[in-house]
Nucleic acid binder design. Structure first.
Length: 202
DNA sequence: CCGAGGATTATCT
DNA sequence: GATAATCCTCGGA
């Protein structure tokens, strides 16, 4: 039985790039309303940090949408992209420092049958290999925005998982950035993933 | 196999 | 009014 204790708030208080790197291999845990448990290993993340980062929602001043990024670390920041997709982020860095880590993909470890119920007819590696697919698989929506992920109280948290050695980590530019994003933010290697893992997005 | 374009709506300008 | 940290489908080769 693995230890499902939530990671402490101090972990998320680090710079978003540190959090993104260290979240690789960690276990994303979801307790569904009916009590069913889903566990998934995080295999791909992206960091967004600072008011200078043109790719980050925090690039503007505080707005109703990006307010969670300015809030306490370890809370969820969930927002709707393209009018269709919910994306899950974890707030990083201390209060008033706008930063978050986007959870882009994860590998199912337990409760695959509960994911399959929502992803009928798809190949398993299509279930969670993308930020919007992941939220569908785990039943995450805007209702989870701002929730504290350092407690098990809300049915969603992150626990320590396996250590991923540097030799198995790859980095690259972030994906799907808008056309307003210019260098250096366009190419800065703030995306992390586990090499050769089939659940990493394409 | 690959690239183009549509879906669908909260949020910001 | 335009845009968006994506995904899926469809048409062409």
């Amino acid at each position: 039985m693995s230890d499902l204790t939530p990671l402490p708030r101090a972990f998320y208080a680090q710079h978003a790039t540190q959090v993104a790197r260290q979240l690789l291999g960690a276990t994303l845990v979801r307790r569904l309303p009916d009590g069913a448990l889903i566990r998934a290993k995080i295999v791909e993340t992206e960091a967004y940090s600072g008011t200078d980062d043109l790719a980050s929602h925090g690039r503007a001043k505080r707005t109703p949408r990006n307010l969670p990024m300015y809030g306490p670390p370890g809370h969820a920041y969930v927002y709707l992209a393209y009018g269709i997709h919910w994306l899950l982020n974890v707030v990083a860095e201390p209060i008033d420092s706008p930063a978050a880590v986007l959870i882009r993909a994860a590998e199912p470890l337990e409760g695959a049958e509960h994911i399959a119920a929502r992803r009928d007819g798809r190949a398993p590696y299509d279930w969670t290999s993308g930020p919007a697919r992941l939220t569908v698989a785990l039943g995450i929506t805007g209702a989870h925005n701002k929730l504290d992920l350092t407690t098990t109280a809300h049915g969603l948290w992150i626990a320590a998982g396996e250590e991923v050695p540097d030799s198995a980590v790859r980095t690259g530019a972030r994906i799907g950035l808008g056309k307003r994003v210019r260098e250096p933010w366009l190419s800065i290697p703030w995306r992390w993933w586990i090499a050769d893992n089939p659940y990493v997005s394409r």
